[in-house]
């Protein structure tokens, strides 16, 4: 396959996966810092950037040993998976043993996965607390997809566009960040996971991020072409 087409396809797929990943994360924002909303108490950008950076680190280490696209992308997914898992677990420990609240979803009455009742554990006037089971699983899925997307972009830039490892990492991060932020604007800052009604807005973000990633992919392949890095 033509390398330029491969770069554009990989960047497009990476951007769309990043956008999808953001929609699955339990992002609580400022209200979660006071334990009055479900999710981890930080912004979408910080969570997704942290997850993507961890993914890029693992992907970059694995990419020094192999040039198998699936292996590199999956190692990136595992890196961000670990980061999100640890973050959500520690956030939950703080919420449960520090603040003294029960992890509970504010948007659904019954957990769609474990069928546990949520409503009676929720403090009145609050929008849920901590990271409940369904949000945890959703967050793990989000980190998996986001990390996979970021590492896919990194691999495409490294192997098909022949960028230097640092340049590929930073360029992948730049494109990833732009897509994650557009997706964050779509959800208006906070989301619980796939059970949240805001998740239904997903197609709009996928369309926007698709267009932005397509343009970014074209620009990156132009850089590789003009810089004399490919054929």
């Amino acid at each position: 396959m033509d390398p330029i087409l491969l770069i554009v396809v990989c960047v497009l797929a990476g951007g769309v996966l990043a956008s999808l990943g953001v929609h699955l994360l339990p992002v609580g924002g400022a209200p979660a810092a006071m334990a009055t909303a479900t999710g981890v108490a930080t912004g979408t950008v910080m969570l997704m950037l942290g997850a993507a950076m961890c993914g890029l680190f693992t992907a970059a280490s694995v990419a020094t040993y192999t040039s198998n696209i699936l292996l590199v992308s999956l190692s990136g997914a595992v890196g961000s998976w670990l980061m999100m898992g640890v973050t959500m677990l520690l956030a939950n420990l703080l919420y449960v043993f520090g603040v003294g609240v029960v992890p509970v979803s504010g948007r659904v009455d019954v957990d769609p996965i474990t069928r546990e009742s949520q409503k009676e554990y929720k403090t009145p006037q609050c929008d849920g607390h901590g990271v409940p089971n369904v949000s945890y699983i959703s967050g793990m899925m989000g980190a998996l997809l986001g990390g996979f997307g970021g590492a896919l972009m990194y691999f495409a830039l490294l192997e098909y566009a022949n960028f230097e490892p640092t340049m590929a990492g930073v360029a992948a991060m730049g494109i990833f960040v732009a897509n994650a932020i557009i997706a964050a604007y779509n959800i208006g800052g906070t989301i619980e996971g796939f059970q949240d009604p805001k998740f239904k807005r997903l197609p709009k973000a996928l369309l926007t991020c698709g267009i932005i990633s397509l343009l970014s992919g074209v620009l990156v392949s132009v850089v590789a072409n003009m810089g004399g890095l490919i054929g």
């Binding site: 730049g174 964050a184 850089v223």
Partner: peptide, 23 residues
């Protein structure tokens, strides 16, 4: 009010900035 905090748009600017600088 962006909904995601002020930093997000600054990060977006530099994300585009890196890509643009490489071009």
């Amino acid at each position: 009010g962006l909904g995601t905090g002020v930093p997000s748009i600054g990060v977006l600017a530099m994300g585009y900035g890196i890509l643009g600088a490489l071009v």
